[in-house]
């Protein structure tokens, strides 16, 4: 397989996805340096495994899956996995939003499991099926998480309407 073409193809594909990759990484990692680390590792991994991109898969969900997994790996490694800095738990009664909080910030403060499905579904535009594949979850499980997290976001939108 011609190496130079693979490079060109990969570069052009990634260039198109720079913004959404950054959004996903910063949304999951929260800290810019961690997000950059995750992206760097994900790009390395993706290019090493580019030949495994199978027939049915599109490039975007493929690389987003690699990036998501890399973010998870780093979060786990840095023990950020526990929800020390998760401000809003879905269960808590905290329903007051500061006036200048954006929807993005609301999402950033969700627990990781909700944050991920929200970002992949609403921000990356991935299907339930692709998300299930990415996170190694059942489609039902993804739907469940999504509908619970959606409640929180709906609350925000209703507040914004007032």
């Amino acid at each position: 397989m011609p190496e130079n073409w693979k490079k060109k193809w990969f570069c052009s594909k990634v260039q198109e996805l720079k913004a959404p990759m950054w959004g996903l990484a910063i949304g999951l990692m929260k800290h810019p340096q961690d997000a950059e680390d995750a992206i760097q590792n994900a790009l390395m991994l993706a290019y090493e495994h580019i030949d495994e991109l199978s027939f049915a898969e599109k490039f975007k969900p493929w690389i987003m899956r690699i990036l998501t997994n890399e973010c998870y790996r780093l979060l786990k490694k840095r023990k950020l996995y526990v929800d020390i800095d998760e401000v809003y738990d879905l269960q808590d009664e905290h329903s007051g939003f500061d006036e200048d909080v954006t929807l993005w910030q609301v999402v950033e403060n969700l627990k990781l499991e909700y944050r991920t499905v929200i970002l992949l579904f609403y921000y990356e535009g991935m299907s339930i099926r692709q998300i299930a594949h990415t996170l190694d979850l059942s489609e039902d499980n993804v739907k469940k998480r999504l509908s619970r997290a959606r409640g929180k976001l709906r609350e925000y939108l209703e507040k914004e309407d007032l």
Binding site: W22, G23, G27, T102, W104, V107, Y122, L153, L157
Partner: peptide, 11 residues
């Protein structure tokens, strides 16, 4: 709406 608002507020 969520999609649109989220895109707008994304860094």
């Amino acid at each position: 709406r969520i999609r649109e608002t989220l895109q707008r507020s994304a860094p």
